[in-house]
Amino acid sequence: MAKKEYVFRYKLEPKKEALYPDPLLEMIRAQLENILNLVIPLEGRREVKIDGFKLLRDRERVYKIFSKEQELGDFLQERYL
Protein backbone atom coordinates (compact mmCIF):
# COMPACT_ATOMS: atom_id res chain seq x y z
CA MET A 1 0.00 0.00 0.00
CA ALA A 2 1.33 3.44 -0.90
CA LYS A 3 2.53 5.51 2.04
CA LYS A 4 0.18 8.40 2.86
CA GLU A 5 1.61 11.82 3.57
CA TYR A 6 0.31 13.31 6.77
CA VAL A 7 -1.90 16.35 6.17
CA PHE A 8 -1.29 19.34 8.42
CA ARG A 9 -4.81 20.72 8.87
CA TYR A 10 -5.91 23.71 10.92
CA LYS A 11 -9.38 24.76 11.96
CA LEU A 12 -10.83 28.16 11.10
CA GLU A 13 -13.13 29.80 13.59
CA PRO A 14 -15.58 32.65 13.17
CA LYS A 15 -13.83 35.91 14.00
CA LYS A 16 -14.86 36.94 17.51
CA GLU A 17 -13.02 39.99 18.78
CA ALA A 18 -13.22 43.27 16.91
CA LEU A 19 -11.68 46.59 17.88
CA TYR A 20 -13.83 48.54 15.43
CA PRO A 21 -17.50 47.92 14.56
CA ASP A 22 -16.95 48.73 10.86
CA PRO A 23 -16.07 45.28 9.43
CA LEU A 24 -13.93 46.60 6.56
CA LEU A 25 -11.97 48.86 8.88
CA GLU A 26 -11.59 45.97 11.31
CA MET A 27 -10.34 43.75 8.48
CA ILE A 28 -7.55 46.23 7.69
CA ARG A 29 -6.66 46.63 11.37
CA ALA A 30 -6.58 42.87 11.97
CA GLN A 31 -4.38 42.27 8.92
CA LEU A 32 -1.94 44.97 10.04
CA GLU A 33 -1.81 43.60 13.59
CA ASN A 34 -1.24 40.15 12.22
CA ILE A 35 1.66 41.16 9.98
CA LEU A 36 3.26 43.34 12.67
CA ASN A 37 3.45 40.30 14.94
CA LEU A 38 5.70 38.67 12.36
CA VAL A 39 7.86 41.45 10.90
CA ILE A 40 9.46 44.73 11.87
CA PRO A 41 9.01 47.34 9.13
CA LEU A 42 12.03 49.34 8.05
CA GLU A 43 12.56 52.78 6.59
CA GLY A 44 15.86 52.42 4.80
CA ARG A 45 17.64 50.27 7.38
CA ARG A 46 15.99 51.95 10.37
CA GLU A 47 13.46 49.90 12.29
CA VAL A 48 10.06 51.58 12.36
CA LYS A 49 7.65 50.73 15.14
CA ILE A 50 4.06 51.26 14.08
CA ASP A 51 1.01 51.32 16.32
CA GLY A 52 -1.64 53.06 14.23
CA PHE A 53 -2.79 53.84 10.71
CA LYS A 54 -4.82 56.29 8.59
CA LEU A 55 -6.95 55.56 5.55
CA LEU A 56 -5.83 57.25 2.35
CA ARG A 57 -9.33 58.58 1.85
CA ASP A 58 -9.40 60.30 5.27
CA ARG A 59 -6.04 61.41 6.62
CA GLU A 60 -7.52 63.21 9.63
CA ARG A 61 -8.47 60.12 11.61
CA VAL A 62 -5.96 57.86 13.32
CA TYR A 63 -6.84 54.27 14.16
CA LYS A 64 -5.08 52.03 16.69
CA ILE A 65 -3.76 48.71 15.49
CA PHE A 66 -3.45 46.90 18.78
CA SER A 67 -5.71 46.50 21.81
CA LYS A 68 -7.86 49.29 23.23
CA GLU A 69 -5.66 49.26 26.36
CA GLN A 70 -2.58 49.79 24.21
CA GLU A 71 -0.60 52.76 25.40
CA LEU A 72 0.37 54.89 22.44
CA GLY A 73 3.99 55.28 23.47
CA ASP A 74 5.39 58.80 23.33
CA PHE A 75 8.41 57.49 21.52
CA LEU A 76 6.18 55.88 18.93
CA GLN A 77 3.95 58.93 18.49
CA GLU A 78 6.77 61.44 18.20
CA ARG A 79 8.92 59.44 15.89
CA TYR A 80 6.50 57.71 13.66
CA LEU A 81 2.99 59.08 13.70
Binding site: Y10, L12, E13, P14, K15, P23, L24, E26, M27, A30, Q31, N34, I35, N37, L38
Partner: peptide, 17 residues
Protein backbone atom coordinates in the same frame (compact mmCIF):
# COMPACT_ATOMS: atom_id res chain seq x y z
CA UNK B 1 5.75 28.49 13.38
CA UNK B 2 3.55 31.59 13.85
CA UNK B 3 3.20 31.96 10.08
CA UNK B 4 0.51 29.28 10.33
CA UNK B 5 -1.33 31.31 12.94
CA UNK B 6 -0.82 34.31 10.63
CA UNK B 7 -2.55 32.48 7.78
CA UNK B 8 -5.38 31.43 10.08
CA UNK B 9 -5.99 35.01 11.25
CA UNK B 10 -5.70 36.44 7.74
CA UNK B 11 -8.25 33.97 6.43
CA UNK B 12 -10.57 34.59 9.38
CA UNK B 13 -10.43 38.35 8.92
CA UNK B 14 -11.17 37.98 5.20
CA UNK B 15 -13.97 35.49 5.74
CA UNK B 16 -15.60 37.99 8.08
CA UNK B 17 -16.29 40.20 5.04
Amino acid sequence: EPRIEFIKKQLESLLAV
